[in-house]
Amino acid sequence: MSDRSFQGYATVEQIDGQGMITVRADLADPKVAAAFKKATGLAVPETGKATEDGMRVLAWMSPDEAMVFCPAADAGTITADLKSALARLHALVVDVSDARAAFTVKGPAAREVLAKLAPFDTSAASFAVGDFRRTRIGQIAGAVYMANDTDIGLVCFRSVGDYAWGILCASATQGSEVFA
């Protein structure tokens, strides 16, 4: 796997070096929130949202699961910090940076490209900047993050990275614009 880029009517990029850490813990527990704050500097996000500081993103996966996105080089340190901050609580911290493939779909048509593959409402009214959503991408599980007005971050399992790349590029191919 490596960095690659496809220029269609939206741009699809695969990103190498995306650090990811899965944390299982009760996100409603204030002590858990404090531990996140201590280890990542980020507040626990609301349901369906992510918090970020420009470098790191803390995403809501379920009431008892969160995902930290960070530069891959920092993943080891942050994992250790989280483990130590959560040591006295019931929690499981796993570095999963290598378990997933990460993509960005960029451009004004990014939402439209995603709407061909994911069965949820990708319009700005329903999927706003800062929203994070676990969904289905074609036939695979995935998660998407509306990073700003035009960039959608997307992760899926590593083994199906080529499949995700293929269907994202196909959906972004020139000529398949839904709203030209």
């Binding site: 796997m1 074609g138 399992f157 083994s159 199906v160 080529d162 293929g166 269907i167 196909a170």
Partner: peptide, 15 residues
């Protein structure tokens, strides 16, 4: 839909 040919089904690939 897109689920034809190369994208008929997701193939899982090891590293």
């Amino acid at each position: 839909g897109e689920a034809t040919k190369d994208h008929f089904q997701p193939l899982r690939k090891t590293p």
